[in-house]
């Protein structure tokens, strides 16, 4: 029983990170129609920036910040990086074919990763957390509080994102742009500004994911890539549209890997999320939670 609980917690935490990654690229997808393949490396970058800000001399030798202020500064920096990324790698290509833009994000991913390697080196680093080493006992299983924090923060962040979409001017404009960019532009929606905001928010979410993920182990250049892949799987399960669906998708793949994979065919559990994803694409491409048929992506 306690193993079941512990594995469920692992699955939920992994699913939460995947969901954060997925919501991150869903934002840019909705605003610009582009899936950002650099999302994984943005997650890695977020973790490294947090390390940079909170350790040794801090950023630009200004002194190390405490953890929580450091996290906030990191998310702000990531937001700015996202906006810059939009200007550098996406804006010059607006109106070009989707393939072109996606390949550009691949290029951006390569540059990001190599840059981090030169900047921070390849020796693993560590990002501390205020909850380090703390555990909470649930039904005989000790769950690290960091994992609980991951789930809680994800719930908060995703709820905020959903609210942002549903109740704010930004959300309405974003939905309008997602529907029909040209018409939205004609109606006075500041589409350029909007896509910069979306990239910024998306990168900020990647930063949050990186900050949450990093204290579980140590940080190296491959940190974010796997979770980007899991995020893709989560997005596919959720139907690549609704944020709620993506979250459920994330939880599903987290549980498939850690809970199901904890009992059945352990050695191969890393591939279960992707098998599930392929099955969904084959049998129900509109996702698990979307009714009716949706236009193919």
């Amino acid at each position: 029983m306690s193993t079941f609980v512990a594995l469920t917690a692992s699955g939920l935490a992994a699913g939460a990170i995947a969901a954060l990654a997925a919501v991150g690229f869903l934002l840019t997808y909705k605003a610009t129609g582009v899936v950002n393949f650099a999302q994984g490396d943005l997650i890695t970058l977020g973790a490294y920036i947090a390390i940079w800000v909170t350790q040794k001399e801090g950023m630009f030798g200004l002194g190390a910040l405490d953890l929580v202020p450091g996290y906030i500064v990191t998310v702000l920096i990531m937001f700015a990086i996202g906006m810059v990324l939009e200007r550098l790698a996406y804006a010059p290509l607006r109106g070009r074919s989707i393939h072109v833009i996606v390949i550009t994000t691949l290029g951006a991913a390569l540059v990001l990763r190599a840059f981090i390697g030169l900047w921070q080196g390849t020796t693993p680093k560590f990002l501390d957390s205020p909850l380090r080493g703390e555990v909470v006992g649930i039904a005989g299983a000790n769950i690290s509080q960091q994992r609980v924090l991951i789930v809680v923060v994800t719930i908060v962040v995703v709820s905020a994102t959903i609210a942002l979409f549903a109740f704010t001017q930004f959300g309405r404009q974003l939905r309008a742009t997602a529907n029909d960019r040209d018409t939205a532009k004609l109606c006075g929606v500041p589409v350029n500004w909007l896509s910069m905001l979306a990239f910024g928010l998306s990168a900020a979410l990647a930063g949050v994911a990186g900050i949450l993920l990093a204290p579980l182990g140590s940080v190296d250049l491959t940190l974010g890539f796997n979770f980007m892949l899991l995020g893709f799987a989560a997005a596919v399960l959720g139907g690549f549209g609704s944020i709620g669906g993506v979250v459920v998708g994330g939880v599903a793949i987290g549980l498939v890997e850690h809970l199901f994979g904890g009992y059945v065919g352990r050695d191969f559990k890393a591939m279960y999320p992707f098998i599930l994803m392929l099955l969904i694409i084959a049998l129900r491409p509109q996702g698990l939670f979307t009714r009716g048929s949706v236009q193919r992506l």
Binding site: S2, T3, L7, A13, G217, L223, H258, G261, G262
Partner: peptide, 28 residues
């Protein structure tokens, strides 16, 4: 690249000692 070894850790329950041949990240 593992970031969660809950299953593996819990399987060690009852051991007097653990021997591990691993990479830096999973060790952490």
């Amino acid at each position: 690249t593992a970031t969660d070894l809950t299953e593996q850790a819990r399987a060690m329950d009852g051991a007097d000692a653990i021997i591990d041949f691993n990479f830096p990240n999973p060790i952490g």
